[in-house]
Design a protein around this nucleic acid. Structure first.
Length: 206
DNA sequence: CTTTGGATCGTCT
DNA sequence: GACGATCCAAAGG
C-alpha cells in the first residue's frame, strides 16, 4: 500500500472545479494535495478572497502590477510577500476577469518532510512546519519565483492534486485572519478537528 | 497557556 | 510615508 498522500495515487485537480463562487471553490480545495518539487502537503485551511467586491482582497483597489495574476485564468499561483518577510500563496479562481483567489493557510506535511525540516531547522514540532500561510511556503519551498505557475498541469514543478480523500462534508468555518476590512465575512474554511490549522485568531472575534 | 514587540520592505496613498 | 492576507522568541500567569 502506498502511504497516504502519495502523489502516485492522485490525479490533477480539475481546472473546471476552480471556477465559480470563491467560497465554494475554497471548500473544494480542502484535503487536496499540493506538490512542490517533491514535497507534498495536504491542504487543511484556506481563505476566500472575492476580488474587487471584497475590501480585504489585494484586488480591492483594482488591477495593479502586484495583483495582476489574480485577474487571470483559474489554476495558477498568485504569490505575494507579507510584511516584507514571508511568502504567501493563493490559487487563482476562475473565470478570468473577477480577481478571485483562495489563500492557502495551512497544509499537513505528507511527503518530503525531511526536506521541510531541513529548510526550517528551528521548528522542533512537525505540526508547526506548515500551519500558517508564510510557514506553508517556507516548508514547501514556494517563493516569488513560482508566481504564475499552472497548478493543473500534469508535468509542472508545482501541482495541485486530488486523491481518494475528498473535501470534508462539513468544513469548519470562521471569519478570516489578520485583516482589518470586511472582517465579518465567514470565509475561512478548515478540515474539522485537524490539529494543523494556523494559530491566527479570526478577525471580528471577541 | 497568553501577550507583546521586533523584524523588514514592496506597494499604494 | 504608512501599512500590512505574518512569524517567532521572550516574558508573564
Amino acid at each position: 500500500m502506498p502511504p497516504a498522500g502519495d502523489v502516485a495515487v492522485s490525479r490533477p485537480f480539475p481546472r473546471r472545479e476552480l471556477s465559480g463562487d470563491v467560497a465554494e471553490v475554497a471548500q473544494r480545495l480542502l484535503n487536496a494535495l499540493l506538490e512542490v518539487r517533491g514535497r507534498v502537503g495536504r491542504i487543511v485551511e484556506v481563505e476566500a478572497y472575492d476580488g474587487e467586491t471584497d475590501p480585504a482582497s489585494h484586488a480591492a483597489g483594482g488591477r495593479t502590477a502586484r495583483n495582476e495574476l489574480m485577474f487571470g485564468p483559474a489554476g495558477h499561483l498568485y504569490v505575494y510577500r507579507s510584511y516584507g518577510l514571508h511568502w504567501c500563496a493563493n490559487v487563482v479562481v476562475g473565470p478570468a476577469g473577477p480577481a478571485r483567489a483562495v489563500l492557502l493557510r495551512a497544509v499537513e506535511p505528507v511527503a518530503g518532510v525531511e526536506a521541510m525540516r531541513c529548510d526550517r531547522p528551528r521548528i522542533r514540532d512537525d505540526r508547526s512546519l506548515a500551519d500558517g500561510p508564510g510557514k506553508l511556503c517556507a516548508a514547501l519551498g514556494i517563493t516569488g519565483a513560482d508566481a504564475g505557475a499552472d497548478l493543473c498541469r500534469r508535468d509542472g514543478e508545482l501541482r495541485l492534486r486530488r486523491d481518494a480523500l475528498g473535501p470534508p462534508d462539513r468544513p469548519a468555518v470562521t471569519t478570516r485572519v489578520g485583516i482589518s476590512r470586511a472582517v465579518e465575512r465567514p470565509w475561512r474554511f478548515m478540515v474539522p478537528g485537524h490539529p494543523g490549522v494556523s494559530r491566527g485568531r479570526p478577525a471580528g472575534a471577541a
